[in-house]
Design a protein around this nucleic acid. Sequence first.
DNA 1: ATAGGGCAGT
Length: 690
Amino acid sequence: MGVSSGASAIKNFLQINPIADKLKPTKAKSTINTILAHLEAGRLKKAVSLLFSSPFPFDLPLYGHLFQLCSANRAIVEARKVESHLISYYDPPPTFLLNRAIEAYGNCRCVQDARELFDEMPHRDGGSWNALITAYAKGGFPREALGLFLDMNRSGVSPSEVTFASVLGSCGVLLELGFARVVHGFVVKLGYGGNVILASALVDVYGKCDEIVDARRMFDEIDRPNAVSWNVIVRRYLEVGDERQSILMFFQTIQTGVRPLTFTYSSALVACSTRQAFLEGIQIHGIVIKYRHEDDEKVATSLIDMYVKCNDVVSARKIFDQPSVKDLLSWTSMVSGYAMAGRLKEAQELFDKMPERSIISWNAILAGYVRFGQWEEAQSFIFKMRQNINDADGVTLNLVLNVSTALSDIECGSQAHAYIYRHGFESVIYVNNALIDMYGKCGALGRARICFHNMSGQRDTISWNSLMNSLAQQQMSMDVITMFREMQKETTPNEYTFSTLLAACANIYANNQGKQIHGFMIRNGYKIDDVILSALLVMYSKCGHLEYALKVLKNAKPGDATLWNSMIIGCCRHGKAREALDLFNLMKEIGVEPDNVTFQAVFNACICEGFVDEGKRYFDTMINDYGITVKLEHYECMINLYTRYGAMKELVKLLKMPFKPTMSMLTRIFDACKVYSNPRLAMWVAKKLN
DNA sequence: ATAGGGCAGT
């Protein structure tokens, strides 16, 4: 605002004061005392109505005082009365008081009143612009606030620090990065660069606009960041997904000696939860205690949640048991803690004790049953939910659909579908995706397709994956490959897409397509994780490209038997039994622990090549050296091996197994008895068959 | 004048 407008305010004051003095009778003295008494007692309404009914002007400071109180109490009617009184007895009214009036209207969220007064006032100064811009910014009209800022500059009034604060706030809401940069230049040019509040506001805008590097640069320029500055940088790091930096900045806050805001703990603790940073979480807990923030409900809930997410339910419970921190959210947090740890009985018990429950509390329990595959319990819980609350949200429906899918209960799924339709959850993408998944996995591909088509225009990668996955499971491999082409016109595939796609290629031995997909992934920089590696290996080995499969195996991190199993099975399938056994020996050398599937594959290799003695040795090794429990499948392999190559003595010994021989085993043995003429064993089999 | 938190699923 500068000197000139300040001077004009004083000039106004001097001009009108003599008039006011002339009009002020003794009666005013007693009235003003009554008004002050009302104000003292907090009776703003009475004070204003007395003012309003007094047909004479009062001292200017009284108006200022009244406007401020109207602001604080959001008393719009009173604010209008005070303004009306002021302009009736002072012509022109002093600008600084009208500015207070604009502020009051702004705080009452009556932008229209603020604007009208601003337009009608005889003299405007910088304060008037500030008041109006702030009114718009706070009133939820950030766009208009920015427009006014431009008008202000055009009219030659120079913005103050206060203006910039409001304007930067509005830039943050609108994610107006370009505007913010211009304002930043302005701030520096006018010499406000050292203002902590403005600098913090800039950190905030840059962070909100995802320009976290600029945000940090700005932050580092602040000489003495205050608690808000630290809060902003911790929060912004969290929201761009850099939890590590968020935590680091929190600890720097402490090192600088700044007492964190309670909000800041929440951000830092959420960061710990996401990263499962247990040790850091404990340290933050210590700081919470040091600064006596442990009784804050929100801080406590964040702590509980941090412990829960770091799998320390006991510590979570200790905080929860402190008397002052129990509210709906901490209850729910604790219940969810037990549920997610698989301690569903304890979760249920605590849930039953809750003084009140939200839909989130209900969902927490249901989510526990779903996560741990307790489908029957989940189903009866859903039933209980229906009886107790007449409410479901997107998460509930998603969970209900998961249960339906797992139980192949298309009836339950269709009921959920009807609910979704009636309550308008069709616009929720992940609910729709769950529907596609449910119908697809229940075998109702037609209905899955209908859901898929109904959400055209709002489909995401998961929608495509769901349908493709169901198609692949039902051997419609060509459709999967066709859909992949369609998919790329609309959205981007992810790792999950490729594992489905590669499985489909493997199913129909489409190794050319498989190879193309592999190349596509490499060219487009997709992460080749364990799941993809396994899918690639299965695809190559199934299609007989054993050399490619081997390359994949070499690139995988050692130690995972599954990949080796696929490789060994692939060798067997293509008549390379010797290589299969070499691989097994290599596995041993490298130190990869074989599992029961590995041995099944090894036995199959022996069957292919007629390695009877070797097969027997591997069988003994499995039991004696690896301590693997012999499963029926292993006996099946060995019986297959011995019968095919007439190792009747070994066969008889093997039949002392702890399983009842299956029908297919018995027929196989019986046939072998005929070929290798073993009437005694044949009799034994015949007896079993009867 | 700046910021403005915590619980359910994906």
